[in-house]
């Protein structure tokens, strides 16, 4: 049981990075970045290939650069080439499928069983301490903390404020002499880098990467983000970022419990889809409910009551 919880926390923390990336693109920039799945896999593939070639620590910046590149392409399609933001994401996601297989050397699967990764070094170091076996949790926690710190500081700067304003009122951004093309590009590069980091860490902690490792990530991360919002709600940027992580952890814990009650593992994506539907449609329907009630009463002939 303890092992199950630990696994859920590890997965939760690693996917929390993708949730934080969506916090930037979806919550702040107001763009639903559908290239997230492909970008996650891209980070996983690039990270794995670099680690297999004998550079476990280089795999992290390499994956992040790859993610930033993917974000750059998505944002250029949106801004410079005038392609709708959802469509840009889908196009990049599709293109990345081919690129990811090419990165893995015409294969859809890479094995890292005997590869030195960012986790193996710490695993050996912790072997004779009470923290034995907690290497994945520790490293994931460090990265999550670093990303939250980065978000908290970065979105207080002028460029950070400009990115938030771009998602809020683009006219106001232009009249403040800021180029919204620039802010969109920077925001999507950052969120891409963090998504790829998430993929890289997941692949290395599982010691393998396959072409489907990122499929459905955007829905899972969105579900986590919305769960976090429901629990933590409004407040400062650090508080909201913390909420995103809490959302990711709750999602994984609930999923683990569902597995214990014999829910088949393949249901994960259906569950995440339902959560996203409930979280977005719920508030909308709640707002519409009084009108619906009124209409029903009218139907019964006492509408003026």
């Amino acid at each position: 049981m303890q092992l199950l919880i630990q696994t859920a926390l590890e997965l939760g923390l690693i996917s929390a990075l993708t949730v934080l990336a969506l916090f930037i693109s979806y919550s702040m920039l107001n763009v639903c970045d559908l290239s997230t799945d492909g970008c996650f896999t891209y980070g996983a593939c690039v990270g794995a290939v670099v680690a297999i070639s004998g550079h476990p620590y280089l795999s992290i910046p390499a994956a992040m650069c790859a993610g930033a590149l993917s974000g750059l392409v998505t944002s250029l399609l949106q801004t410079v080439f005038g392609i709708n933001s959802l469509l840009s994401g889908i196009i990049v996601n599709t293109a990345l499928y081919s690129i990811n297989i090419a990165v893995m050397g015409n294969s859809s699967l890479l094995n890292m069983n005997k590869t030195a990764t960012v986790f193996t070094g710490l695993k050996e170091a912790l072997a004779s301490t009470p923290l034995k076996g907690y290497q994945t949790l520790i490293i994931a926690l460090i990265f999550v903390a670093a990303v939250i710190l980065f978000i908290s500081l970065f979105f207080r700067t002028r460029i950070g404020l400009a990115i938030r304003a771009t998602g809020d009122n683009i006219t106001m951004v232009r009249s403040s002499s800021i180029n919204p093309t620039k802010t969109t590009i920077i925001a999507l590069c950052i969120s891409g880098a963090i998504t790829a980091l998430s993929g890289c860490l997941l692949a290395q902690s599982q010691k393998s990467v396959n072409i489907d490792i990122g499929s459905g990530m955007v829905t899972i991360a969105l579900a986590s983000l919305l769960i976090g919002r429901a629990f933590v709600g409004k407040g400062s940027i650090p508080k909201k970022a913390f909420g995103a992580v809490i959302g990711a952890l709750i999602f994984r814990l609930v999923y683990m419990i569902a597995l214990r009650f014999n829910m088949p593992a393949f249901m994960l994506k259906l569950v995440s889809a339902v959560i996203v539907i409930l979280a977005i449609a719920g508030p909308y329907l709640k707002e519409r409910y009084p009108l619906y009630k009124r209409k029903r009463m009218c139907g019964r002939g006492d509408g003026n009551a």
Partner: peptide, 27 residues
């Protein structure tokens, strides 16, 4: 409503408009 960003605070809106300092500077 068109001249201000609704989810940013009064201070943050002013800071964006005033654009003092570099891109990475805070208020």
């Amino acid at each position: 409503l068109s001249g201000t960003a609704p989810h940013l605070t009064v201070l943050e809106n002013l800071a964006l408009a005033a654009q003092s300092g570099g891109w990475l500077s805070s208020i």
